[in-house]
Simulated scan of single mutants.
Amino acid sequence: MKRILLFIATNIAVLVVMSVILSLLGVDRFLTRSGLNLPMLLVFSLVVGFTGSIISLLMSKTMAKWSTGARVIQTPMNGTEAWLLQTVGKLAQRAGIGMPEVAVYDGEPNAFATGAFRDSALVAVSTGLLQGMTQDEVEAVLGHEVAHIANGDMVTMTLIQGVVNTFVVFLSRVVGFFVDSALRRNSDDSGPGIGYTVTVLVCQIVFGIGASLIVAWFSRHREFRADAGAARLLGTPQPMINALARLGGFSPEGLPQNLAALGISDKPGVMELFSTHPPLEQRIAALRGQR
């Protein structure tokens, strides 16, 4: 889950910071000086939207290491670390990608893969995963993460995020323009006022959270593909089925402090809409259907 959570959190933060900077530089004032220039605003939104998502992608490995405290294995310190390097290398070769960095971090059972490029990605596993699963199950989880890399999931999510960002930036400024116009109906001042600035910032955060629903929906579908990819890399779906069943017996993982405000977790009810992963039962059923 960290793979997408980190991406969404970084992306929203970059988007808001860029918008504040551009507003201070007078870009918004230029766009609305003679009314709302929709074609120019759309081009502006495309540039800002995709720049934010691309920056998030390029920062993904660094942010993941920093947020989880992951330690990249340079020289194996024990047999488990040596096995991790060997297993990831074997799976990467089968998947036709370059050897990823392999890292370990302290935490509840989980793993993630991230990175902007297929041949220089990062695969990280938690100490809880290594302690709570058999080697076959850990290998299946590693296969799942390697499949994410081979499928180009982070790049795909970047493109999707760039598109929804574009709409967030565009619609926020449209709403801001009309709110500001209504507040200053009897004013002769030209250009956006404080009402515009505040409305745009609030709308970007609210619309950004709404956009995360769309990103989460795509992410859930990518998880099924990664599960199937792990089954292909291992030659059988059973280890992945066993690993998912084992994960169902663990307590849900707490989010890093910098992500807690997002409130995205694998929970039933309304919160399930924000989940980046489908229910484990659905994933197991999909794998069993491959037999």
Score class of each variant (00 low, 15 high):
residue 28 D to Q: 14
residue 30 F to P: 07
residue 105 Y to C: 09
residue 183 L to F: 08
residue 197 T to G: 07
residue 92 A to R: 15
residue 150 A to M: 12
residue 190 S to G: 13
residue 78 N to K: 15
residue 199 T to N: 04
residue 227 D to Q: 06
residue 201 L to N: 03
residue 291 R to G: 13
residue 178 F to S: 09
residue 52 G to Y: 07
residue 276 T to R: 05
residue 14 V to S: 11
residue 93 Q to P: 00
residue 249 G to C: 03
residue 254 G to Q: 10
residue 160 I to S: 06
residue 284 I to A: 14
residue 77 M to V: 11
residue 236 T to K: 11
residue 46 L to E: 11
residue 58 L to T: 10
residue 290 Q to N: 14
residue 291 R to A: 13
residue 22 L to K: 13
residue 105 Y to K: 03
residue 182 A to P: 07
residue 79 G to S: 14
residue 164 V to G: 03
residue 6 L to W: 14
residue 75 T to G: 01
residue 147 A to E: 00
residue 123 V to T: 04
residue 180 D to E: 11
residue 38 L to T: 09
residue 155 V to C: 08
residue 37 N to R: 15
residue 124 A to K: 02
residue 32 T to C: 01
residue 138 V to H: 00
residue 100 P to Q: 02
residue 233 L to T: 14
residue 75 T to N: 11
residue 176 G to C: 00
residue 208 G to F: 01
residue 204 Q to I: 13
residue 22 L to H: 08
residue 212 S to N: 07
residue 129 L to R: 04
residue 158 T to W: 06
residue 274 F to M: 09
residue 235 G to F: 09
residue 266 D to Y: 06
residue 11 N to E: 12
residue 73 I to D: 12
residue 202 V to Q: 03
residue 84 L to F: 04
residue 185 R to I: 15
residue 220 R to L: 04
residue 25 L to W: 05
residue 228 A to D: 11
residue 56 S to F: 02
residue 50 F to R: 05
residue 137 E to F: 03
residue 61 K to P: 08
residue 220 R to E: 03
residue 9 A to E: 12
residue 198 V to A: 02
residue 1 M to W: 13
residue 122 L to G: 08
residue 47 V to T: 02
residue 220 R to T: 05
residue 210 G to E: 08
residue 265 S to R: 10
residue 268 P to V: 00
residue 134 T to P: 11
residue 104 V to G: 00
residue 7 F to Q: 07
residue 259 L to Y: 15
residue 236 T to I: 01
residue 94 R to Q: 15
residue 159 L to W: 08
residue 170 F to E: 10
residue 136 D to C: 00
residue 125 V to P: 05
residue 270 V to M: 10
residue 99 M to P: 03
residue 57 L to N: 02
residue 164 V to M: 12
residue 223 E to S: 10
residue 290 Q to R: 15
residue 254 G to W: 05
residue 172 S to V: 09
residue 218 F to Y: 15
residue 232 R to C: 11
residue 56 S to T: 11
residue 42 L to K: 05
residue 233 L to M: 11
residue 254 G to P: 06
residue 213 L to R: 06
residue 31 L to Y: 03
residue 27 V to S: 12
residue 280 L to M: 14
residue 81 E to D: 12
residue 29 R to L: 08
residue 204 Q to K: 09
residue 45 S to T: 06
residue 277 H to Q: 09
residue 252 P to Q: 11
residue 169 V to Q: 00
residue 45 S to R: 06
residue 241 I to P: 01
residue 222 R to P: 01
residue 119 D to M: 03
residue 209 I to Q: 12
residue 185 R to Q: 15
residue 289 G to S: 14
residue 177 F to W: 08
residue 111 A to Y: 02
residue 287 L to P: 01
residue 115 G to N: 01
residue 42 L to E: 04
residue 278 P to H: 04
residue 117 F to S: 09
residue 191 G to A: 11
residue 79 G to K: 15
residue 38 L to H: 07
residue 50 F to D: 07
residue 32 T to V: 10
residue 177 F to M: 07
residue 222 R to S: 05
residue 286 A to Y: 01
residue 49 G to W: 14
residue 6 L to D: 00
residue 122 L to Q: 04
residue 265 S to N: 08
residue 197 T to Y: 14
residue 265 S to Y: 12
residue 204 Q to P: 01
residue 103 A to D: 04
residue 201 L to F: 15
residue 185 R to V: 15
residue 128 G to M: 06
residue 131 Q to G: 09
residue 57 L to P: 03
residue 138 V to A: 01
residue 4 I to K: 04
residue 142 L to G: 00
residue 120 S to K: 03
residue 280 L to S: 10
residue 269 G to M: 09
residue 29 R to D: 13
residue 204 Q to T: 05
residue 132 G to H: 06
